[in-house]
Design a protein around this nucleic acid. Sequence first.
DNA 1: TCGCATT
Length: 265
Amino acid sequence: MATIVCPPPVLLSPPLVSYARPSSASIRDANLYVSGLPKTMSQKEMEQLFSQYGRIITSRILVDQVTGVSRGVGFIRFDKRIEAEEAIKGLNGQKPLGAAEPITVKFANNPSQKTGQALLTHLYQSSARRYAGPLHHQTQRFRLDNLLNMAYGVKRFSPIAIDGMSGLAGVGLSGGAAGAGWCIFVYNLSPEADESVLWQLFGPFGAVTNVKVIRDFTTNKCKGFGFVTMTNYDEAAMAIASLNGYRLGERVLQVSFKTSKQHKA
DNA sequence: TCGCATT
């Protein structure tokens, strides 16, 4: 007669349920944001760099959606929070291998708590347009033509040619998903300038998807310039034509499309 | 006087 021996239940329960992982506190927020990575560094190389500090659960390197090249930004999720803390201590501000620039390692933001910037953009625009924005296409085009003539010198370039985007090589049409649009360089901001002033200046001209005030890392003061990304060329051109030379406080702004800076002759 | 970057 065959006898079936049942294993004691006590052997089954621990690995299957309660002790599958340590308590959530020790594994929470073990996710790191890494920037300044060499563009040539692969995900595997990044993992090798971080693996000395603990067990890596997931990793990722963000790439430009158009070119596929690394954006120099990545994520490392460790098994435990303390491992992530040690990795920050050991790697933040360090130069990997023979890289020219040090990397930044910090705890990542929660992806679900997005900045809400795009949403705010639309909310702001819908209110700003009511009293300051372009009204409809005929009016907008009329004003754009005049402003372009003022900006470039009447009759030197026709608005048609500008609208055709001829002669715009090296100008700030940026690729990538979040960065799609026309990138505008704003110079001569005050050290106290913040993002809100850029929203207020450019928002009335149309769809603004991103603004950035560049600050000194240590003083946190504006370095005198910033960037604005606008979705539509006409609106960007209108903003530039209107705001270049605009006096903001004691300063006269210089506003133009961002230059590429990649191919420095 | 032309960047950051948040899966």
